[in-house]
């Protein structure tokens, strides 16, 4: 889908020569710290931000020349809500359906379904400003589905949602995927990505660091488990001796392991540790390992 894709703003290169390919019917995640270039990629896929260099094809069509066709098959949840503040919930969906040339009757039918789905029936005649943050997000999702898209672009779709709403959206996304919709998403909730995505990339500074399935990526960079222990010099010495892979985070040490039980026993026996805990490794561990723990400005 993308080859040597590049995007520059004046003197800043936001996306630096990246390659990726998303299969039809797949759920694909883009991860990365703030400013990594995720939104920039989403906007290029949406055909609203021109490509600086390289090639980007969506559903086999070039984003430079076939924008209208691409956009008519696509649904978008942008990072920043952009509901139409001059209209009510219902009118927002209706007005939006017109941009896709959906006939009025059909649109009305779809709107009822979508309002049911995002649980906003009660708010249908409310102006969008008076919705809560989570309700706005749900309405943006409903709006993205009005044209029955074949490709769904979700830029941090569940930001600001309560756990109930997030689970609801996950469930619906899985449903859409079953219907064959391709879904591309970015998110800072790594558990969400781990649960939902078939494949993902982790990127930073406009480049892709890794690509693979959630489990594959975890396995490759961390191993299956993590043992956490309190930091002391003796432990580090002991770990060095075993040539274990570990990371010191303040007064805690993360030790990466393929077999947590074995490692824990070793540590307890040989390194005379008293307090350790083992847990399965998560995507979050990979993310932090790859992109560092420092906050981005």
């Amino acid at each position: 889908m993308a080859k040597d894709l590049q995007k520059s703003f004046k003197d800043l290169t936001a996306v630096n020569s990246i390659n990726f390919s998303i299969d039809e019917g797949e759920m694909f995640g883009f991860l990365g710290p703030n400013g990594a270039g995720k939104t920039t990629i989403m906007r290029m896929i949406q055909c609203v931000s021109p490509v600086t260099a390289g090639k980007l094809e969506v559903m086999g069509m070039d984003v430079n020349t076939q924008q209208r066709e691409i956009k008519s098959f696509m649904g978008v949840v942008p990072q920043e809500n952009n509901l139409d503040g001059d209209f009510t919930v219902y009118e927002n969906l209706l007005v939006y359906s017109r941009y896709f040339d959906i006939p009025r009757e059909e649109a009305e039918k779809r709107i009822e379904e979508l309002l049911d789905f995002v649980h906003l029936q009660e708010k249908r005649d409310v102006m969008t400003e008076s919705l809560s943050g989570g309700m706005k997000r749900r309405l943006v999702l409903a709006r993205a589905l009005i044209n029955r898209p074949r490709l769904l672009i979700l830029d941090e779709p569940t930001v600001g949602l309560d756990p109930q709403a997030r689970h609801l959206i996950w469930e619906k996304l899985r449903g859409l995927k079953k219907q064959g919709v391709t879904i591309v998403l970015t998110s800072h909730y790594l558990d969400e990505v781990e649960k939902l995505c078939d494949r993902l990339v982790v990127m930073d500074y406009g480049r892709i660091l890794v690509e693979g399935s959630p489990a594959g990526v975890i396995e490759e960079f961390i191993g299956s488990d993590i043992v956490e222990a309190e930091n002391n010099p003796k432990l580090l010495e002991c770990l060095e001796k075993k040539e274990a892979s570990y990371e010191v985070i303040g007064d805690i040490v993360h030790i990466y392991a393929d077999n947590a039980r074995e490692l824990s026993e070793y540590l307890l026996m040989e390194c005379s540790l008293s307090k350790i805990s083992a847990r399965p490794a998560t995507l979050e561990d990979v993310f932090l390992k790859l992109t560092g723990r420092r906050l981005r400005e």
Partner: peptide
């Protein structure tokens, strides 16, 4: 209102 942004995501 970001109305234009919303509209250009459509055809």
């Amino acid at each position: 209102q970001k109305t234009f942004d919303a509209i250009i995501a459509t055809p």
